[in-house]
Design a protein around this nucleic acid. Structure first.
Length: 516
RNA sequence: GGCCCGUUCGUCUAGGGGUUAGGACAUCAGGUUUUCAUCCUGGAAACAGGGGUUCGAUUCCCCUACGGGCUACCA
């Protein structure tokens, strides 16, 4: 039935806040699937709940997708398209007729119960030890709805302006089967479903109705969404059936959830900063509480690496390779290699992916980012910003040691200014009169060197050690600390070469002055 | 509680009736880098339990346990 249909998928978040990693992954899988099959990827905003509107959330979603490189070809923020509008609040006029159609065909009915009455009903059910209090085939007989009220009464209430909702009338005894691409056949009995509200008293549809109507109207071929929607999928199947659209119903694929790294449970907004990693792609400030949540972008994650990591969280390629560009992911992706079980997010692996991607960046690219940090540091520390060639060479040396570009400054500040402090342990242990004599000699030999490349610096270092009658190994580490202040670093003589003869000599001299 | 989904190393996972159960992250050990990181080599590390079916089950079926999701006029 859907085999020959053009692939059209959608990502349909509600703008109730920033989308988190799980949502990004859902969007990613939709995007990969669409591109893989030469189909369309649509962004639709599901803002049917006016009470939960969060200013800025929609813009955040769009910006996030852009940063991630997941660009819908159609939808809000991405040039709209032939099925506009793509914001459900703007599609309000579409929905009513379908709700009416369901009422006319006897698959839905008006209900007038107030929130208080519904609450009372649930209380009663609980008191009667009913396992699952619900508005269903049994309880609807005792509520105020079009099934229990007389026609006159119904008309009186409606014309009197009374609030009402439209509920689906779930059949009493029916087996609902639905095929899920990831999970196979799922069978649910109608008795476990309730008469969900389809149309709210504020005139807006609920997610269930809007989602089905829009997917139909927008000719969506595959619904790829999180597993949290699986329980309501049978309801959606019923809706397609009752609306007469079952033959063009999209295929379903319910994705496993992204779980928290510690303990258990679905990854949620609060987890990230509590556990020390972001859950959001971009930094987000809650417009009401002003609370700030960190983002992957601000933490220095490379979007391609972030996507690569996310793609592998719940999906596995056919081979052993783990590094994939977006194009390669498109080529490799398939829904039948998506796993069924939820996946715990591992921040360590995310870091590893970033490190891999950091290394793939050219020195030039890295320098263009690092220079912004350098500009700030040059102001606060009062050093002159070196030329871009120098910055690029620094990046080339320190990128092997870093997982994030944010670490560059701490790793390589000595390339831009003399060390402000020296590793005390090394000084204490290694700075001996013999060492002092050696460095005094080294300073003179370096100062009179004709050229100062890494091999030359190394040769002079070794011959000076020979002259001083000292083993190079005893002063090597000391030399690093003298020129950089710290213990670790890139290849020592490459570091010296880049620093240049003047700086190296000056720093040895400074050490000679400082330590006696 | 009810309904639904799930369960292979600590984590992400491959595999699938007969395999030394493979890879990656993390971890440990050795090597290279006269340091750190990288890199290389190696190690430790898993089929939740019980019943079937079968000559043979980690793989298929059932039950149990455990985990997760859902259970709103939220999405």
């Amino acid at each position: 039935m859907t085999e020959n249909k053009k692939v059209r998928v959608r990502y349909a978040p509600s703008p109730t806040g920033p989308l988190h990693m799980g949502g990004v992954r859902t969007a990613l899988y939709n995007y990969l699937f669409a591109r893989k099959h030469g189909g369309d990827f649509v962004l639709r905003i599901e803002d049917t709940d006016q009470g939960r509107f969060v200013p800025g959330a929609e813009k955040y979603i769009i910006e996030s997708l852009k940063w991630c490189g997941i660009c819908p070809g159609e939808g809000i923020g991405f040039g709209e398209g032939p099925y506009a509008p793509y914001r459900q609040s703007e599609r309000k006029p579409f929905y009513r007729q379908y709700a009416d159609q369901l009422v006319r065909s006897g698959h839905a009915y008006y209900a007038f119960d107030t929130p208080e009455e519904l609450e009372a009903m649930r209380k009663r059910m609980e008191a009667a030890k009913v396992t699952a209090p619900a508005y269903n085939a049994v309880t609807r007989e005792h509520m105020k709805n079009a099934l229990t009220l007389s026609e006159d009464e119904i008309n009186r209430r409606i014309s009197g302006g009374e609030h009402y909702v439209i509920r689906i009338k779930i059949p009493r005894n029916e087996e609902i089967r639905l095929h899920d691409i990831i999970r196979g056949w799922v069978v649910v009995h109608s008795s476990s479903l309730d008469d969900k509200v389809l149309f709210k008293s504020d005139g807006m549809p609920t997610y269930h109705l809007a989602n089905v109507v829009d997917d139909y109207l927008m000719k969506i071929s595959h619904v790829i969404r999180g597993e949290e929607w699986l329980p309501s999928a049978p309801l959606h199947v019923l809706l397609y059936r009752y609306l007469g659209w079952e033959d063009v119903m999209p295929q379903f694929a319910h994705l496993p959830l992204v779980l928290r790294p510690d303990g258990n449970g679905k990854l949620s907004k609060r987890d990230g900063d509590r556990l020390g990693f972001p859950v959001f792609p971009l930094e987000w400030q809650d417009p009401f509480t002003k609370e700030v949540s960190s983002g992957y972008r601000e933490r220095g994650y490379i979007p391609e690496g972030f996507m690569n990591m996310l793609a592998l969280l719940g999906w596995h390629p056919s081979g052993n390779n783990e590094i994939f560009s977006m194009d390669e992911l498109v080529r490799e992706f398939s829904l039948d290699r998506v796993s069924k079980a939820g996946a715990k997010f591992d921040p360590e692996k995310a870091k590893w992916f970033n490190q891999q991607y950091l290394r793939m960046k050219s020195d030039e690219e890295l320098a263009s980012v690092f220079v912004r940090e350098l500009e700030k540091q040059s102001v606060s520390h009062g050093f002159a910003l070196p030329g871009s060639d120098y910055i690029q060479r620094v990046c080339g040396l320190i990128k092997e040691k870093a997982a994030f570009i944010g670490e560059f400054w701490n790793l390589g500040s000595y390339f831009f200014m003399p060390p402000a402090a020296y590793d005390e342990e090394v000084i204490k242990k290694r700075w001996t009169p013999a060492a002092r004599a050696f460095f005094s000699l080294l300073r003179d030999n370096y100062a009179s060197a004709m050229e100062f490349t890494a091999p030359v610096a190394e040769n002079i270092f070794k011959s000076s050690a020979g002259q001083a009658g000292i083993n190079p190994g005893q002063v090597m580490q000391l030399f690093r600390v003298i020129i950089s202040g710290i213990v670790g670093g890139p290849a020592l003589f490459d570091t010296a070469e880049l620093l240049g003869k003047e700086a190296v000599v000056t720093r040895i001299e400074a050490a000679l002055q400082k330590f006696t």
